[in-house]
Design a protein around this nucleic acid. Structure first.
Length: 214
DNA sequence: TAGAAGATAGGA
DNA sequence: CCTATCTTCTAG
């Protein structure tokens, strides 16, 4: 038939994360009856020089699936609450991936609404990584599965890439969140792209804390 | 074994 | 602006 064969998604995802990112924009990720057109992603490289990556300090129980081959799904629990989805890129062992940060629900809108009762409008259903995971009904059990084999599948966008913009990654603290790592990619002008939020510093002011201010 | 920080979201 | 919530990682 005409549906995208699993091999095409796997072939795309076997490329380098920074090359795959623009191609993922506009592609559709499907889980059961809900599908999302991806409008925003962030690239995280492996152990080689990306201090913002979960894999930066090497392989652990949590990030193990990042070390899998391109097309592997990496799901992690964020802030103890949200399930965030990454699609692993590159060859096995490299541990690079793309975080799905936002998208537009293009199929199964009613199901997505039911999963996200606090969403004010449809543009907010999958606007943000936690929201996107929630709208798609992502579970930690999806971690380590493969596109087209597990519950998730990817329809690679057949047409030309839309206008794309790039910038610093959201919520990544320190140097890794700065201009030196402009690895956030989004579709220009798309309403479903999440709002930028600089990394928050949660350190308790501890009343006096020896004032950092000079 | 303990403690802090974290690729967020929602509410005041 | 502030907090909920809890896993993961690091230090000792």
């Amino acid at each position: 038939m005409t549906s995208t064969p699993p091999d095409e998604a796997t072939r795309l995802m076997s490329g380098a994360a920074l090359e795959v990112a623009p191609r993922l924009l506009g592609s559709v990720v499907r889980v059961g009856g809900v599908a999302v057109r991806v409008t925003e992603v962030e690239a995280y490289l492996g152990t080689a020089g990306d201090p913002g990556s979960h894999a930066h300090r090497g392989r652990t129980a949590r990030n193990a699936s990042m070390f899998g081959p391109g097309g592997t799904v990496y799901v992690y629990l964020s802030y103890g609450i949200h399930r965030c989805v990454n699609l692993v890129c590159g060859p096995e062992g490299e541990a690079s991936g793309l975080l799905l940060r936002a998208g537009e629900v293009v199929e199964g809108v009613e199901t997505a609404r039911a999963r996200r009762p606090t969403s004010r409008g449809d543009v907010d259903l999958a606007r943000g990584p936690g929201r996107l995971g929630s709208a798609l009904g992502i579970d930690l059990a999806d971690d380590g599965t493969r596109l087209g084999i597990g519950r998730l599948s990817l329809d690679v966008r057949p047409g030309p890439a839309p206008a794309i913009e790039t910038g610093p990654r959201v919520g990544v603290s320190g140097e890794a969140g700065g201009d030196r790592y402009p690895w956030r990619f989004w579709i220009a002008g798309d309403a479903t792209v999440s709002a930028y939020r600089a990394a928050v510093r949660r350190a308790r002011p501890a009343s006096d804390a020896g004032s950092v201010l000079g």
